[in-house]
Design a protein around this nucleic acid. Structure first.
Lengths: 397, 397
DNA sequence: TTACTTAGTCCCGAGAACGAACTAAAGGGG
DNA sequence: CCCCTTTAGTTCGTTCTCGGGACTAAGTAA
């Protein structure tokens, strides 16, 4: 009924080799040193992986002395996944190579009132030509998501949606994740920071937290919904409550504040243009937001203690103007020394981050990085899964 | 240099067996079914564990039909660890059986101005008679701790202390952890909730968060320091900043508020007694705190999304009086449906929780539950360690 | 050309698990 | 009372993987 157990260990070692090669090309000898496996074992496993088309041999290395080794690397395009962002403004669909390269991307907007069914049908239509091939399709929503169900997405106006029936139409594996959490993955999976917070700031505010290389999800998938932390404000939030942080820090408030200063900007894009042209009121409004964000980051730091904060969402475009007041304010409000100069930078993948994160769900799965995307527990679990509680280092030392 | 690799797999399977037995007695046949291992393999590993004195055979089971099996269980006392809490008021030292039983506990107070050196010397003196034997000594501090260094403990008045030289005197392995985080472990390790937040509320306020069976630590060990989330208040906090949540929700504020209502209570103990006697002002002050806490828990829920909140610290003693207003207020302020009836209860281990948590650090290590206490990554990592991110299942229950 | 160093392959022995065959110990039916 | 069925647990032969030593390959330095 069960495969010979020794094959399990082979799988683990294959995984180890792929994990190391994800960071760059290596020779068999390098792999032997890094994994601790005997040269012979590495040779055998690498042969297998070459045969399967997962690896490719590349150029030779020139060590100071001795025979050169052949570099091995992940074969480009050997595996890839699709990712989609169902955002407030529009939809993004892209294909992501297993090495983190965006192979292609499409974007389209949609009538504001379009419901989930319509939007998924359109997505299905765009996805179909690319099947089979991808490992899966991971998509993201700006809302609280747990086990393929959407509990609440205030800024889309959707709530309590079981998406499983709709997902069943897709002719490939699907996964669903919150946009901020997925975006955080996009940074972690390919840039390897183990502790970070990804701030998605547009109309709404959400945070994706990764701690010790694991995504913080919570029991209902609501961890990091700091936009709905109740502050002292009196504004009505899209979620129906009063005083959510999002009403103070969301970009709606920025536009509002700019108007209250006497500024005239129809929308955020206009405001951004004014700022780029050095218009004083626009700069002042943005500076004010930056200060508030700095204080918020000090709070974020005591809540999650990241080593890096990434700014995404529409706010990323304002980042050049936000940066200075934000850093000053963070420095002034930080609880720990260590937080005073907390690195803050905009997202690497830019506005593609959520979709890239969606796709990385499947790449993480392929690489069996359970911390990034653990499968739900199986009922009659495999053997090791029972007790592999993550990275355990030897008892020694 | 490295042990034969097949032994690694044996270790994993031994671990699997112990992990299952942690939840209760099982027969060899049960273990075979649960782990997926062949009966023969289980037999061999169990024999080995019996020989080492880790397991014991117990009574027979009587299945509906067929030969009865012999139940196996962890031998009581076969492994244990020491835990200590260095609190604001005093010190607790205890021994914890590997099955979660407190074998003995000692407590003592100390002159308020005693420094870390003095307090550790006293602790060493109390620990010495019990060495050798324990797996290690884990102790906790009400402050931000990372890698055996204390960054900041406002309520002790300590900061930037490298405790490694002091720890070197202890003739057994030591570990250091924040009190709220350790307390969270005490609940998770033996009662198996995978997503919980442990609220330590006394003078200070701290939260220990466990998500998917992993302790949230952050880059500097400061995750969960919500007591130092900047709110709108104007009170000076012990950390030197103004407006920390702790100044509003800490029990100091409770006493303060009671006085402002006209109440007369010298200290918290007196206030508690008054409440127990039904004194109106005391009850009103506590009710007021309960409401504020309910709102706070709604925020805690969006930050970490736990499935359970445990209340510890001095506030646990006030819990009967806090409970009703707290639940009402939480229900009124919750962001998600799922949070409206978030279970809230006092700690199982009561005031011993931090010390029990400290000891569990070593028990978790023994059971190789890396999520609870992962060692720092090694530079030249072991083989599996590098990449086993596997999905880890529930701990206890 | 030779000595040395590093890369990579080949092959055999060791250790672990699997699974089938077997023994052990209960209950139920005739 | 005996035999059949069922479940528990052991024994033993087979299979799989790794480790490690012997070996070949391919460079540099003298």
């Amino acid at each position: 009924m069960r495969k010979g157990d020794t094959q399990e260990i082979r799988r683990l070692n294959r995984r180890a080799i792929l994990a190391h090669l994800r960071r760059g090309p290596l020779t068999r000898a390098d792999l032997s040193r890094l994994t601790g496996l005997a040269k012979s074992a590495v040779s055998r496993l690498v042969d297998e992986l070459l045969q399967e088309g997962l690896l490719e041999e590349g150029t030779l290395t020139s060590p100071p002395v001795g025979r050169p080794g052949t570099l091995l690397h992940l074969r480009p395009g050997a595996r890839f996944a699709l990712g989609a962002e169902l955002g407030v403004e529009g939809t993004v669909l892209l294909a992501l190579d297993w090495r983190g390269e965006v192979l292609w991307a499409k974007e389209w907007s949609h009538p504001r009132e379009a419901g989930p069914k319509k939007r998924l049908e359109r997505l299905l239509h765009e996805v179909l030509p690319h099947v089979p091939g991808p490992l899966g399709l991971g998509f993201t929503l700006p809302g609280v998501v747990v086990e393929d169900r959407l509990l609440l997405a205030p800024n889309l106006g959707w709530r309590n949606l079981d998406l499983r029936p709709l997902l069943a139409d897709f002719p490939l594996p699907t996964a669903l994740e919150n946009d901020a959490k997925a975006s955080a993955l996009s940074e972690v999976f390919f840039h390897g920071e183990a502790n970070l917070a990804y701030l998605v700031l547009s109309t709404g505010l959400g945070v994706g937290v990764v701690s010790e290389s694991r995504l913080l999800r919570g029991a209902s998938g609501a961890a990091g919904e700091l936009g709905h932390w109740l502050s002292q404000g009196h504004q009505l939030c899209a979620c129906g409550r009063v005083g959510c942080l999002e009403t103070e820090l969301g970009l709606g408030a920025l536009l509002e504040h700019h108007r209250s200063l006497g500024g005239k900007a129809g929308d955020l894009e206009a405001l951004l243009q004014q700022a780029k042209q050095g218009e004083a009121l626009a700069l002042e409004a943005i500076r004010h937001l930056g200060e508030a964000l700095g204080r918020f980051l000090a709070n974020l730091a005591v809540a999650y203690d990241p080593a890096l904060v990434v700014v995404g969402g529409k706010a990323a475009e304002f980042f050049p103007f936000l940066e200075t007041p934000l850093r000053q304010s963070l420095r002034a409000h930080a609880f720990l020394e260590a937080h005073r100069d907390l690195p803050v930078r905009p997202s690497v993948y830019g506005h593609l981050a959520p979709a890239v994160g969606g796709a990385s769900l499947f790449l993480a799965r392929f690489f069996e990085l359970g911390g990034l995307w653990a499968e739900r527990p199986r009922r009659n679990g495999g053997r090791y899964e029972e007790v592999v509680f993550g990275d355990r280092r030897g008892l020694g030392a």
